[in-house]
């Protein structure tokens, strides 16, 4: 009896997230999947129903895979996917490059300062993400903060075009996602036993080599977690390329938006979304695998 109650309690606790995932992930996903294999039509809703009654007794099921074939054939989508992956990969590397020293500095700072520094890392979250990206427009535009300052100082004669370039997109993504890189890195570095680095130095290992052979392997879980936390949302990023990028910085999130709202082609838009999801599941599974292995070692 007691045992049963225990099991019931456990089931109740795990039912909450399970229900959440069912309602807000599985059901919408199935709806999108359904739309992605439907045919397009003009009207409301702008797609054909999957099931129709051919006669009063025969149920007619029509699956349109041509939406996916269309994605594959039209270079626009392929380029958008590839470009998204490239932008996300470069941004992830940049975040790692800036984030690692930052996380190291915080983890090795005086304990009294450490919490304050962490708070500063998280401080930007107190303002809306959208507002912060808008603010960059004011900073980067031709008569924005940077150009006006440089013009006033006489460093340049005409404004440097920064807004609506790839540079602005990278800047926006790195700026927005850096905290997601720093926090897992901090957690990993903070756990690193500094006497291991002393032991390495004592055994004749120079600092840079010690970094590669001791520090990187032992903070690998933080590197992987931070990279995925930046990479995955960066692939599907819509706001930053839309606001800071130029017309040629084609990313899949923007294509999705245009397909959905401008072309009103819901089936193709859904197919784009499903393809993106599949594209992202691969790195997530890699992450899970690495985490699982780490768990086994410790």
């Amino acid at each position: 009896m007691k045992r049963f109650r225990l099991r019931a309690g456990r089931a109740a606790v795990s039912a909450v997230p399970a229900l959440w995932l069912l309602l807000f992930f599985a059901v919408p996903f199935l709806i999108v999947l359904k739309i992605s294999v439907s045919g397009m039509r003009l009207g409301m809703p702008p797609y054909e129903p999957l099931f129709t009654w051919a006669t009063s007794l025969v149920l007619d099921l029509r699956i349109h895979l041509d939406n996916y074939a269309f994605l594959w054939q039209d270079p626009l989508y392929r380029n958008a996917y590839l470009n998204s992956l490239r932008v996300a990969a470069v941004s992830t590397l940049l975040c790692l490059l800036f984030g690692y020293p930052l996380a190291w500095g915080i983890a090795r700072a005086n304990p009294a300062w450490r919490n304050l520094l962490l708070l500063l890392i998280m401080l930007p979250f107190w303002t809306s993400f959208l507002l912060r990206v808008y603010a960059w427009i004011g900073i980067l535009k031709n008569n924005g903060l940077i150009n006006n300052t440089l013009l006033a100082l006489g460093v340049i004669d005409e404004p440097i075009v920064m807004l609506q370039t790839d540079f602005a997109v990278y800047l926006g993504i790195v700026y927005s996602y850096l905290p997601f890189m720093v926090l897992p890195l901090y957690a990993a570095i903070e756990k690193l036993d500094m006497t291991l680095l002393e032991a390495a130095a004592d055994l004749g290992c120079r600092p840079f080599r010690a970094f590669l052979t001791i520090t990187v392997p032992l903070t690998w879980s933080g590197i992987v977690a931070g990279s995925l936390l930046v990479f995955i949302p960066a692939v599907g990023e819509f706001v930053i390329p839309a606001l800071l990028g130029g017309p040629d910085s084609l990313m899949i999130g923007r294509v999705l938006w245009e397909e959905f709202f401008n072309n009103r082609d819901w089936p193709v838009a859904s197919a784009v979304a499903i393809a993106m999801l599949v594209l992202l599941v691969v790195p997530i599974m890699v992450f899970q695998h690495v985490q699982g292995r780490e768990g086994a070692v410790r």
Binding site: D193, T195, L196, E198, A199, A200, I214, P217, L218, V297
Partner: peptide, 9 residues
């Protein structure tokens, strides 16, 4: 080292 500081990996 007192803690031995063996490399865990």
């Amino acid at each position: 080292f007192q803690s031995y500081a063996l490399f865990p990996h």
